[in-house]
Design a protein around this nucleic acid. Structure first.
Length: 518
RNA sequence: UGCGGGGUGGAGCAGUUGGUAGCUCGUUGGGCUCAUAACCCAAAGGUCGAAGGUUCGAAUCCUUCCCCCGCUACCA
């Protein structure tokens, strides 16, 4: 038995001052698809998600509601946890940045940074007391805060800074060489041009007063609290117990899983992940993550999702209306993994009808009905006829392409290949007319071959859709009479034509994807 | 201002060594009847944002222009 290869992947941790929207669901689903696929491949997967609770915005939101910050944060984080459950996300842990081990780990990371990379300096800025935030000249409207219509104060404060400028050349080299790989290429180029334009040091702390005594204390300086990004990014290692005494053990999570194989993030936060984060790790002598997968955003009818515009889609409502599997399928196949995409109910319903009801669901239904009419068990198949060879070759090719697309985070294209298999089976039925073969006892052998090919093809389709629609895949397996859990089957067996044994009793069941109510 | 991405039949997309423009959905016509009024076949539909250039030949290379979007730092 060879040692399992480890695979560590993460989502970004959202700040929790608002309800989760469809964009976060998209990120959860994509990351989950990667995680489930890697488990199917046999990897020892650790899938982390979590919540960023140390942002000053949480303090403000709590004040606005008149409740303690800790209470607000716990409540709002609960909504994100609820969403991961409703989406049936298979995360192995959920890190909250209010956890003490996160504070300890963040402080450890700070302390591990080279002393010459962190320095204290006076910072001067235009500060709006109402917003509790600094503004740049360009953000002001007529010299006033756009929110409160009043001129900001010139505030001077001493903060810690990180010497990002020290890392410009190294970061450029690491990214250009793909040692730190950024997918897709466009994001890599974007960040490279940013780095080449010159990196400036950035502030990594706030005064405790300004931070409202909320956040992670700077080690050795009680007057300062970490700038939220510094601690937020460190969640990727603190969740693995970095900073705890036990982390030094060879059997610890940190030793086992770090560095991350992929951080899944939205395009809006690429800079923090492609520049700040690796620089911090370099300074602290911690290995770098291997890949950043940067996804695009979901627009609503061409308009950015925005609460103020009322253009938000609540993923939980979608799940209530269409079901988790459908939402996961739609997001995986039709929201572009790299570019921004539009979300529309029309497209969602159209793909449901075309791909799921008329496609996969109907194929399963007609196939199992025919098997039930012909004895109800999986017949002996495989006479090596020309058509069977063609179907087998097609599925082999589908698996190959699917693996490549999944490795490139091209989930939609991977699913396109899967549906090629579905379409091929429908065509196969039309060509061989099993209902006619059934009328002629002399052609029983042919009939059995046709039915076996259908059942075996469906079995393969189930294993291919499993990362995206785990419950549907499992249900197809059950109806085919398979008892061994799908998840326990090795990838090499999933790919092997002929895994399905004859004699299993099938169960047609109700339509997998019934017509949507008008 | 600068850098980058996009502009392909009704919709969503593919198309990087230049060589008669593809896919899925939708539409229309036909076929089949095992199936969730599902399935199969066929057809219609595009001067590939605009103009110019290179070339025997360009969606694909060059130039200019138009439209949309992203980034242009301490912003979850």
């Amino acid at each position: 038995m060879t040692e399992k290869r480890k695979y560590y992947l993460t989502t970004a941790i959202p700040y929790v001052n608002a309800r989760p929207h469809l964009g976060m669901a998209f990120e959860y689903v994509q990351t989950d698809v990667i995680a489930r696929h890697h488990r199917a491949l046999g990897d020892d997967v650790f899938f982390l998600t979590g919540a960023d609770e140390n942002s000053l915005k949480n303090v403000q939101a709590a004040e606005a509601e008149g409740i303690p910050t800790a209470e607000l944060v716990a409540r709002n984080t609960g909504r994100f946890i609820e969403l991961t459950r409703r989406l049936e996300i298979s995360n192995d842990d959920f890190i909250r940045t209010v956890e003490s081990k996160h504070h300890v780990g963040s402080q450890k990371l700070w302390s591990a940074c080279r002393p010459e990379d962190i320095y204290k300096q006076k910072y001067q800025g235009l500060y709006c007391v109402g917003c509790e935030a600094f503004y740049t000249e360009s953000e002001l409207v007529d010299g006033k805060c756009p929110e409160h219509q009043r001129p900001p104060d010139l505030v001077e404060e001493e903060n810690y800074f990180f010497r990002l400028s020290n890392y410009q050349e190294r970061l450029e080299r690491l990214i250009a060489s793909d040692e730190l790989r950024i997918v897709p290429e466009i994001r890599k180029n974007e960040i490279l041009s940013f780095i080449r334009s010159g990196l400036h040091d950035f502030s990594i702390s706030r005064s405790r007063e300004r931070a409202r005594d909320w956040g992670v204390a700077v080690p050795g300086d009680p007057s300062q609290v970490m700038y939220v990004w510094f601690d937020a990014l460190s969640n990727y290692i603190t969740a693995l117990d970095y900073g705890l005494d036990s982390a030094a053990d060879s059997g610890s999570r940190f030793a086992r899983y770090w560095p991350a194989d992929v951080h899944v993030i939205g395009k809006g936060i690429i800079r923090f992940h492609a520049v700040y984060w690796p620089a911090m790790l370099l300074s602290a002598g911690v290995p770098l993550p291997k890949t950043l997968f940067v996804h695009g955003y979901i627009n609503l009818a061409g308009v950015k999702m925005s609460k103020s515009l009322g253009t938000v889609v609540d993923p939980v409502e979608l799940i209530d209306k269409y079901g988790v599997e459908v939402v996961r399928y739609y997001l995986s196949r039709y929201i572009h993994p790299f570019q921004d995409s539009d979300f529309t109910y029309e497209q969602l319903e159209a793909t449901y009808t075309a791909d799921l009801a008329k496609g996969l669901g109907n194929l399963l239904s007609r196939s199992l009905t025919m098997i039930e009419k012909c004895g109800g068990t999986i017949p002996r198949g495989g006479d090596g006829a020309e058509d069977e060879v063609a179907i087998r070759a097609l599925f082999a090719e589908i698996f190959t392409a699917y693996e490549r697309f999944m490795a490139d985070f091209e989930f939609g294209r991977a699913l396109d290949k899967v549906w090629e298999g579905q379409a091929a089976l429908d065509r196969y039925i039309t060509i061989h007319k099993p209902w006619e073969l059934a009328k002629n006892p002399a052609r029983a052998g042919e009939l059995h071959t046709v039915l076996y090919i259908l059942a075996e093809g469906l079995r393969m389709l189930a294993s291919l859709i499993a990362p995206v629609m785990p419950a549907t895949a499992t249900e197809i397996w059950r109806r085919l009479g398979l008892e061994r859990p799908l998840g326990e089957v090795a990838w090499a067996d999933h790919k092997r034509w002929g895994l399905l044994a004859e004699g299993l009793t099938v169960d047609k069941g109700a339509p997998l994807f019934p017509w949507l109510a008008k």
